[in-house]
């Protein structure tokens, strides 16, 4: 009988501890969410590097506009802008559930020599695109250093963030955004390509390219919460 009581007591303690951890994780997530939600809009001068297997795009400099919750536009002084479909996914806030969600503590992990708290956030509704978000958080600074979001329609989106000048506002200096890329092929009879490179060169170059697409954005400066008008985002896409 005594043995049973002991077992029950230990189980109860473990349960309480788990609950406490859950609460800490939830608190951390709420703090992070509040920090992110404080940014209503921003415009930032950015340098963008696109590293997608089938894309040969030089580094693009431009101005990135964001307005919460779902408006984003890259303006390049008359040049072409390229943003991933559903580009607002590049905003951290859109990679995390913003309604009621279950937050699970997944322990700690060390990334770049820094110990980070890992939490998993599962939305309580099935209506949104997000199925699960895993966030690596610097607990001291309350900053998301990495996110991995599994979506219903856009595969898994991974994002690494580096902070500097704007860490108080929770805005990164550099974001590396990983996306799943699809195959790109147009019949040669249509494009009438010039076979400049030999087949071996092409295969070699293709094998060097990462399977996942990688978009890197360096934010040079931010202008935050100035009340960007919606008209800025209304552009005819060609």
């Amino acid at each position: 009988m005594k043995k049973c009581i002991w077992i029950l007591a230990v189980q109860l303690l473990c349960g309480i501890q788990a609950f406490a951890q859950q609460t800490d994780a939830e608190k951390l997530f709420i703090k992070l969410r509040q920090k992110i939600d404080a940014i209503k809009d921003y415009e930032a001068n950015v340098k963008m590097k696109i590293d997608i297997a089938y894309m040969r795009v030089p580094p693009l400099n431009g101005k990135l506009y964001f307005k919460a919750p779902d408006k984003m536009k890259l303006e390049r002084n008359g040049g072409i802008s390229i943003l991933p479909k559903r580009s607002t996914n590049m905003a951290l806030g859109n990679l995390m559930p913003n309604q009621s969600a279950t937050v699970i503590d997944a322990g700690t992990e060390t990334i770049n020599g820094k110990q980070l708290r890992v939490i998993k956030v599962v939305p309580n509704t099935e209506q949104g695109d997000i199925v699960l978000t895993k966030i690596w958080i610097d607990e001291q600074r309350v900053l998301a250093m990495r996110t991995e979001t599994t979506t219903r329609e856009n595969g898994t989106i991974k994002m690494d963030l580096e902070f500097g000048k704007y860490e108080k506002q929770g805005l990164p200096d550099k974001v590396i955004f990983y996306i799943d890329t699809k195959e790109f092929k147009i019949p040669k009879g249509v494009t009438m390509d010039y076979d400049g490179a030999t087949k071996a060169d092409v295969e070699k170059a293709a094998s060097k390219k990462p399977k996942k697409g990688r978009i890197q954005i360096e934010y040079m400066d931010y202008t935050i919460n100035k009340g960007l008008p919606d008209a800025i985002f209304a552009e005819n896409k060609k």
Binding site: K73, R76, G78, I80, S81, L83, K85
Partner: peptide, 8 residues
């Protein structure tokens, strides 16, 4: 299908 191309 994967990217929004904007501008002229």
């Amino acid at each position: 299908a994967q990217f929004d191309i904007g501008g002229n």
